[in-house]
Computed example of a mutant assay.
Amino acid sequence: MTILVVGSGGYLGSRLVPALLERGHHVRAGVTDPRRATVHPWTDRVETVHCDVLAPSHLPDALDGVDDVVYLVHRMGAGTDFRREDATGAVAMREAMAAAGTRRCVYVSGLAPSGDDRRPLSRHMASRLEVETLLSAGPTPVFTLRAGVVLGAGSTSFEVLRTLCELLPVQPVPRWMRRRRVEPVAQRDVVEAVCHALEGAPRSGHGDLGCGEALTYPALLARYSRLAGLPTLRIPVPGVPWDLVAAGLSPLVGQDGATVGALIESLQHDMVVGQPTTGLFPEGWQMTGIDDAIRAALASTAGSGTAHGDLPGRRHPPR
């Protein structure tokens, strides 16, 4: 099976490609700049193609002979028009897949708040849901996997978590952040879910990915600190808006302000799995707990764990 990974050079794409190769698939790595596509160890095992969704004239060649597409385009907060660019790219990919007769598309998005959350969606969340809707409006079956905080070395959300704990022994925590819950998911499980979604008959709709444990973001900071052996303390502070929090964190975590802002703004909502969805993993697959996912990411960073923070693939009898 030939699979086009759109966004293969990003965090998740660069972890997904070797997993697809291990399963015997022919991978076509879609990149916006082919000249920068030689940084990964799997480069000589894939077919690299120019695939920029904002330059749609390249898409027919990129999709020629492709069975399935994995769509990993997330512009986060890059520029003031990131939502418009995400929407434009989604429409271009939808039309190109329809013209090429692509069999299916798997899109990785973000967890959406429950229906009883009346707060306006963050720009980040709204854009993800809009892309999901736009991609799904064509004839190509699209299955969306929604994930929140991804625990794995290199993930933006994980690196923000790590940097906060390493640089701030005393962590001011806005009161609104203490009321909202997140449900992380291990990088290993996201990769497996994408691979599994490409097996069997094409499906439509969406499925939520989580570890089965929801906790507040301050509690997640405390969990990381304990596992990393870092003495930290969280202090509640009142009346601090999310944009001020983002502005203060951006220079610390080494990410652009728009990216950090998109993440922090989303923490105003509960980011937890909604209605459980069956069939997201092979039978017997055991989800990774928060502690194991953090330990794997820490081991990867130290150079003593599995590559990219993955845990070895394990299959266990169903519980």
Rank of each mutant, 00 (worst) to 15 (best):
A197T: 04
G248R: 05
P251E: 08
L244R: 14
A201N: 06
A228K: 02
I264K: 04
V273N: 08
L221Q: 12
R181M: 08
G212T: 05
M287Q: 14
G313Y: 14
R180Y: 02
T277W: 07
L227F: 03
C211W: 00
A297P: 04
L311K: 05
G205M: 01
R203K: 07
P174H: 01
V191E: 05
H196K: 00
S250N: 04
T232Q: 05
V272L: 08
W285C: 06
M287A: 14
T277M: 07
C211G: 03
R180I: 11
A258R: 13
R203D: 04
D310M: 10
L233K: 07
V237C: 07
T288P: 09
V272F: 08
V191G: 05
Q275G: 14
D243F: 13
A219M: 02
A219P: 03
G305R: 02
W176I: 08
A297H: 03
S304W: 03
D291G: 10
H269E: 11
A262F: 09
E199S: 09
M271K: 10
R181F: 07
P218D: 00
R175K: 09
E283C: 11
A201V: 10
P241L: 08
D291K: 03
G200L: 01
A262K: 02
D310T: 12
V240G: 10
T259D: 13
P241Q: 06
A302C: 07
A186C: 05
G210A: 07
T288W: 07
D256E: 14
G212M: 00
R315E: 11
D270V: 15
L244C: 13
V245L: 13
E213I: 09
T216Q: 00
G239L: 15
T259R: 12
E265S: 15
V253S: 01
S204E: 11
P202V: 02
R314S: 15
G229K: 02
G248M: 06
A246S: 10
L263M: 15
R226G: 11
E283P: 13
A197N: 03
V191S: 04
M271T: 15
A262W: 06
W285F: 15
D292G: 07
R203C: 03
A299M: 08
L280N: 12
G207A: 02
P282D: 07
L244T: 15
C195D: 02
E213D: 08
P251N: 09
I235G: 03
L263N: 10
G257H: 12
A307E: 13
E283F: 05
F281Q: 10
A299T: 05
R223Q: 11
H269A: 13
H206A: 11
C211T: 11
R181A: 07
S300V: 05
E283G: 12
G248T: 09
M271H: 12
E199A: 08
E199K: 00
V237L: 10
G207I: 01
V190R: 00
I290Y: 03
R223S: 11
V237E: 04
P184A: 04
L263A: 11
A258K: 09
R295S: 10
V253R: 01
D243M: 09
V190F: 02
A186R: 01
M287Y: 08
C211R: 00
S300A: 15
H269Y: 08
V272T: 15
G257L: 12
G313M: 09
P238E: 08
M287R: 15
R181Y: 06
